[in-house]
């Protein structure tokens, strides 16, 4: 049981770290999909099958596609990206320091905590039980989540929709250098 956990952790953390280190965006996105699949494998390992399949459907299936589309739509020529500025190097060093400090604090806190022993038998939740719990106790929350998803996706569509008139009439300030009036 524990060796499987180590394998899953290696897959999950390795691909996530590689995704954050690589400079090719497409490779990063694909590695992150592997990492999300690793998280789904962890859920399967822990006995939460329903959540694992939800993770696969939502992350590996849906969000990955949205991310890949965003990467392809915002692609630019790679020549600019090959030069690493000193400022971004400094920022990366700071980020790694901060992340290492946070990791050290969390690990120390976890290792020094004594948890209650786990329940003798593993908890099980069948799909029927989950459905009943969702619909009975958490029915209001389910409705609110549906509302949030509807509003968020409508808002996302409106935000990303092209506005042709505006694009033609007033070109963006950042794309064109400001014109000097003679």
């Amino acid at each position: 049981m524990i060796p499987a956990l180590f394998l899953i952790a290696l897959l999950m953390l390795g691909s996530a770290a590689a995704a954050m280190l690589l400079r090719n965006l497409i490779h990063s996105a694909l590695l992150l999909i592997v990492s999300w699949a690793g998280v789904a494998a962890f859920y399967l390992w822990a006995g939460a099958e329903f959540v694992a399949f939800a993770q696969i459907l939502v992350y590996v299936g849906a969000i990955s596609m949205v991310v890949l589309f965003a990467v392809l739509l915002t692609r630019q020529n790679q020549i600019i990206d090959t030069v690493i500025e000193p400022a971004s190097r400094a920022r990366a060093a700071t980020a790694f320091t901060v992340a290492a400090c946070v990791a050290a604090v969390f690990s120390a806190a976890i290792l020094s905590t004594k948890f209650h022993p786990a329940a003798p038998e593993a908890p099980t939740a069948s799909v029927k039980e989950i459905g009943l719990t969702l619909m009975n106790e958490h029915g209001g929350a389910l409705l609110i989540v549906g509302l949030i998803l509807t509003v968020a996706l409508l808002g996302a569509t409106i935000l990303a929709a092209t506005d042709r008139d505006e694009d033609q009439s007033q070109p963006s300030d950042a794309a064109l250098p400001p014109k000097e009036t003679p």
């Binding site: 524990i2 956990l5 953390l13 770290a17 998280v39 971004s88 980020a95």
Partner: peptide
């Protein structure tokens, strides 16, 4: 403990990526 340490690792990788 192991699960919490693994999730700490994932959290910090995400944090480093988001900051860097």
């Amino acid at each position: 403990h192991l699960c919490l340490l693994i999730s700490t690792g994932l959290f910090c990788i995400g944090l480093a990526g988001a900051l860097a």
